[in-house]
């Protein structure tokens, strides 16, 4: 029996889709059978981030309304044989599917695969309700910004109200230099407010933009620090105890030189 994990945030642009794509791909890279499901109907993105846009024939609305079979709507990934994408429809809106329909799709998928990662739209309206309808667990993504943390807090309250207590937090786009200078909220500041379990911290990384544009999830890039952070998150989801990575390894030329002269 598989597990349905919804990735949500409240605020837009904090990295829900990126997180969903990377966690899904990372789980598939670990040999799990995974379906990525985009519920952001009308503003679909997950297919672009995954580089699968050109393969879309059927979408979630077609599956929900019985225009195609579930298997037909599942797009096979180009990298992993056990990774699938159910794309959102682009020409409809959030009311094109109901919570019951999404729940039914999730329940059917659970029989077949290990993980269903649901990419939730921004906001707290029907799209959000659809996305969480079939979920067993929730991951809340936020940035170290007051507005994003405020929205995350709101979302955690709504998740609890809908029976998804104890969501886990992914803190995205952290810039250690700014935190050190006191210009950005620290991980501890945010955890004090949100008071939920931390799943992982993703450093701000230019590679994300490049990989998103190319349709290649960062989690597969062994050089990328954000990719490493996502790989750690995947391991934690699989039950491994991985310590948080040190975000401060980025060193300037002079710092390295200094170290060299000090002889360590």
């Amino acid at each position: 029996m598989g597990e349905v994990i919804v990735v949500t945030s409240g605020k837009g642009g904090v990295g829900k889709t990126t997180t969903a794509a990377n966690i899904g791909t990372g789980l598939a890279a670990q040999g799990k059978k995974v379906v990525l499901m985009d519920t952001d109907i009308g503003l679909r993105n997950l297919d672009v981030v995954m580089g699968l846009e050109n393969r879309i024939v059927y979408d979630i609305v077609d599956i929900a309304n019985g225009h195609c079979k579930l298997k037909q709507g599942m797009i096979k990934d180009k990298r992993y044989p056990d990774l699938y994408l159910i794309p959102a429809a682009q020409t409809k809106d959030k009311n094109a599917v109901t919570e019951d329909q999404v729940r039914a799709i999730c329940n059917e998928l659970k029989q077949e695969v290990d993980y269903i990662i649901v990419d939730c739209p921004a906001g707290i309206e029907q799209g959000f309700k659809n996305a969480i309808a079939g979920a067993d667990k929730a991951i809340v993504v936020t940035n170290p910004e007051v507005s994003a943390v405020r929205d995350a807090d709101r979302i955690i309250g709504l998740l609890e109200a809908n029976g998804l207590g104890n969501p886990q937090l992914v803190l995205n786009r952290v810039r250690p230099n700014m935190v050190r200078q006191g210009d950005m909220m620290s991980v501890d500041d945010i955890l004090e407010i949100l008071a939920i379990k931390l799943l992982g911290v993703i450093p701000d990384d230019d590679n994300i933009v490049i990989s998103t544009n190319r349709g290649e999830p960062t989690v597969l890039d062994q050089q990328s620090r954000a990719g490493q952070a996502y790989r750690n998150i995947v391991k934690r989801i699989l039950g491994e105890d991985v310590p948080l990575m040190n975000l401060d390894v980025e060193e300037g030329f002079f710092a390295k030189l200094k170290k060299l002269f000090k002889g360590n």
Binding site: D153, R154, G157, I193
Partner: peptide
Amino acid sequence: VRSGQNISYDGTLIVFGDVNAG
């Protein structure tokens, strides 16, 4: 008590926990 949640009560209200902004 999280952002967006409202607790109204006729009497004294005691919260064991944090009351977040919003």
